[in-house]
Deep mutational scan, measured.
Amino acid sequence: GPGLTDLFKTEKAAVKKMAKAIMADPSKADDVYQKWADKGYTLTQLSDFLKSKTRGKYDRVYNGYMTYR
């Protein structure tokens, strides 16, 4: 089956995709945050998933999740 690194890459891609969806349409934020909360994502995990070469690119999404939880 898929190894943990593959799983991480898949999760990371999914999280980034959802983060971009929030940035494009902030009204989606609560739905996405709820999904992440259901998956039990911690802020540390989210921070790892949303690492970007562009500093602060996903800060709004991260901060939103922090206040959501």
Rank of each mutant, 00 (worst) to 15 (best):
G1N: 15
G1E: 12
G1W: 09
G1A: 15
G1D: 13
P2K: 11
P2H: 12
P2S: 11
G3N: 14
G3I: 14
L4A: 13
L4C: 15
L4Y: 08
T5P: 08
T5N: 13
T5M: 07
T5W: 03
D6S: 06
D6P: 12
L7P: 14
L7M: 12
L7S: 15
L7Y: 14
F8A: 10
F8D: 10
F8H: 12
F8M: 13
K9R: 10
K9G: 08
T10E: 12
T10Y: 11
T10M: 09
E11I: 06
E11A: 06
K12W: 04
K12R: 12
K12L: 05
K12Q: 15
A13N: 06
A13W: 08
A13M: 10
A13P: 02
A14M: 14
A14E: 14
A14N: 11
V15R: 00
V15G: 01
V15F: 03
V15D: 00
K16M: 09
K16W: 04
K17A: 13
K17P: 01
K17I: 10
K17M: 10
K17Q: 10
M18T: 03
M18C: 11
M18I: 03
M18K: 03
A19D: 00
A19L: 02
A19C: 03
K20E: 10
K20D: 09
K20Q: 11
K20V: 07
A21W: 08
A21C: 11
I22A: 07
I22G: 01
I22E: 00
I22V: 13
M23H: 03
M23T: 03
M23C: 05
A24F: 09
A24S: 11
A24G: 07
A24V: 11
D25Q: 05
P26C: 09
P26E: 09
P26I: 06
P26S: 07
P26V: 05
S27T: 14
K28T: 10
A29I: 02
A29R: 04
D30V: 11
D30K: 12
D30C: 15
D31P: 05
D31V: 11
V32G: 04
V32S: 03
V32Y: 06
V32E: 02
Y33Q: 01
Y33I: 01
Y33D: 00
Y33R: 00
Q34H: 12
Q34C: 08
Q34T: 06
K35P: 00
K35W: 08
K35S: 12
K35G: 07
W36H: 00
W36T: 00
A37D: 07
A37W: 15
D38M: 09
D38C: 12
D38R: 08
D38A: 12
D38E: 14
D38H: 08
K39H: 09
K39S: 11
G40A: 04
G40Y: 03
G40R: 04
G40S: 04
Y41F: 06
Y41M: 09
Y41Q: 01
Y41R: 01
T42Y: 02
T42V: 02
T42C: 04
T42G: 04
T42D: 05
T42H: 03
L43D: 05
L43M: 10
L43C: 10
L43Y: 05
T44A: 15
T44C: 15
T44I: 10
Q45F: 04
Q45L: 07
Q45P: 01
Q45S: 04
L46N: 00
L46R: 00
L46V: 08
L46G: 00
S47Q: 12
D48G: 14
D48M: 15
D48I: 15
F49K: 01
F49H: 02
L50Q: 00
L50T: 02
L50E: 01
K51G: 14
K51T: 11
K51Y: 08
K51R: 11
K51I: 09
K51L: 08
K51F: 08
S52R: 04
S52Y: 04
K53F: 07
K53E: 11
T54E: 13
T54R: 09
R55K: 12
R55T: 14
G56F: 06
G56A: 05
G56P: 04
G56E: 06
G56H: 09
G56M: 05
K57V: 07
K57H: 06
Y58A: 01
Y58C: 02
D59R: 10
D59N: 06
D59T: 08
R60H: 15
R60Q: 13
R60A: 15
R60K: 13
R60G: 12
R60V: 15
V61A: 04
V61G: 00
V61M: 03
V61N: 00
Y62I: 15
N63Q: 09
Y65P: 00
Y65K: 00
Y65M: 02
M66T: 06
M66H: 10
M66V: 14
T67Y: 14
T67A: 14
Y68N: 03
Y68T: 04
Y68A: 03
Y68Q: 02
Y68K: 02
R69G: 04
R69H: 06
R69T: 13
R69S: 08
R69V: 15
